[in-house]
Structures are given as C-alpha cells and as structure tokens.
Amino acid sequence: MNPLKWSLVEPFYKLLIGEDRKGQINNITKMIGLPIAGLVVFLLIWQGASSNIHTSLGQFPGPVQTYEQFISLQEEAEASALKEEKFYERQAERNAQRVEKDPGYVPTIRDYTGPPTFFEQIGRSLVTVMSGFFLASIIAIPIGIVIGLSANAYAAVNPLIQIFKPVSPLAWLPLVTMVVSAVYVTDDPAFDKAFLNSMFTVLLCCLWPTIINTAAGVATVTQDLKNVSQVLRLSWWTHVRKIVLPCSIPMMFTGLRISLGIAWMVLIAAEMLAQNPGLGKFVWDEFQNGSSNSLGRIMVAVIMIGIVGFILDRGMLILQKAVSWDKSVTLR
C-alpha cells in the first residue's frame, strides 16, 4: 500500500507536485469542503432551533452547551481517575504500615468502587455489544449455512425467522430478564445479571440478518462449483470448508455488518431498561437526574452513540473488504 495513493492523501500530493491542479482542487472541495459545509449548516440550524425550545429542564442544549458538557464530563473522568489513584495509594500505605507492625498480616486489596465515568460507560457498552454480537454470530453462521445448503431446512426455518426478525428488543427484555434470573442462579456470579439481560437481548435481535444473508450467500454456490465438488468427491465437511464458506463470505459479512448495526441500536435501549452500566444507562440516569445540565449531557451521549456506531460500521467494512475475494464489487 502506497500512502501517497490513499484517497485522503492523493489529491494533496498531486496538488503539491502540480499535477492537474484544477482537478485536485475540485477533488479536495468534494472530499473535505462539502462535508464541512454540511456540518456548519447543521450546527447553525441546531443552534437556531435549540434557542427556541424551552423545556422544564431549561433551554434545549445547543452545540455550545453540548460541548461544555463534554468538557465537564472529561474533567469528571480525570478527577475520578485521580481519586482512584489516591485510593490505591492510601490503601498501599495503610497496608504497609500494618505489615510493619505485624509481619504475619496478609493485606487484602480492596477494589475502588466509585461510580463509572462517562468514558468507562462507553467501554462497558462496547463489551456488552461485542459479546452479544459475537455469540449471535457463532449461532447464526452455522444455521445460515445449514439452511442455505438444504432447501427443506430453509422451508422449515424461514417462517420462524420472518416472525422473530421484526420483534423489538423491548418485547424480548422482560422475558430475557425473567429467564436469566430463573436459570442463572449461583452464589458467586461471574457476570452481572443486568449485563446478561442486555447481552441476550442484543443477541436475540441481531441473529436474523446474519442467518438470512449467510443462507443467501450459500445459495450463490453455482451448480458448476457443486459439480466440481462432486467430481472431486469432496466430503460434506470439505465441501463446506473449501467451497461453500469462501463462496458465501461476501454475503455473510454483509449480514454481519447489518447485525452489528442493529446490535448497537438495540443495546442502548436494553441498557436503559436493564440498568446495565453503559451509554443507555447513562442517558436514563441523566434523564432521571433532571438537572439543568442533563439535556446537554444526553446530547453528548447521543453524538457519542452515533460516532461509536459509525466506527463499528467502518471497522466491519474494512474487515469485509479484507475477506471479500470478489474485488469487482464496490463496498461502501
């Protein structure tokens, strides 16, 4: 990969060496100028509209207030980090003193238990969404392959998929909650129940696109390739591994990408209701808190949810491009 050929770099490089100046300026305007113009217009409309909306928690936050809240969230996170550091310092000091007095004493290390900061909540959300998505993929891909290979299995399973696909996460959540509390009974839980509730809700909602697209991908195996497999007398397993899987990978990844998008959307709702630490809970807590800063903080969360979702999707796109053998298709 030549960095000078990167679409973000190439026009600047060409402009520098004086190749087709006019064309490059056009390119740069299109690539950077127009998105910035769009953003500026959006910010102006946001500012104008927000100053006219008065809620019971005060004026609706405009871009400036939202930015202020973002800074304040950052400061809180820094303060909390400092507090945590101090806590461990104090604890180590105390333990050292006790060991000095009584050499037989084995100090217990206590964890810091402050409230999670905004940025820690993002991390928790990511862990939950990736666990749900990962488990869903492990279940959905084999099902997709099996129903893609057999028209009978497809006919049997397809109605179920069509029925469960449109179900809202909010409908699943109470059921998941009850089942988790009934089934997951241990004295020493490795996972928080709220975490399991949101994860399983995410899982239930993001199974379907992967199943459907994997099955469709398997159906793209042509009769010619099946004949090749038959002439070579490939075993069922080798046939799946060497022919069906690679053939269906582009479609499979399309499904995975849609699933991850849904997973992220569902997660926020699930976290709100399941009270699982994460961005959803942050939004809900701020809403319940009802201070004059709350709406600004929720706005920060909204933008953050969008940015993280965008990054997740880009990540999947990069992965999809890396594993797709069919380079004639432009992925976007």
Partner: peptide, 12 residues
C-alpha cells in the same frame, strides 16, 4: 475428470 465449459475455477 471433467473440463467444464465455463472453466468452473474457484474464484477465490
């Protein structure tokens, strides 16, 4: 062994 009309190579 069969040589197919449209080659039938695995494209990947």
């Amino acid at each position: 062994a069969v040589v197919f009309q449209n080659h039938s190579l695995l494209p990947w």
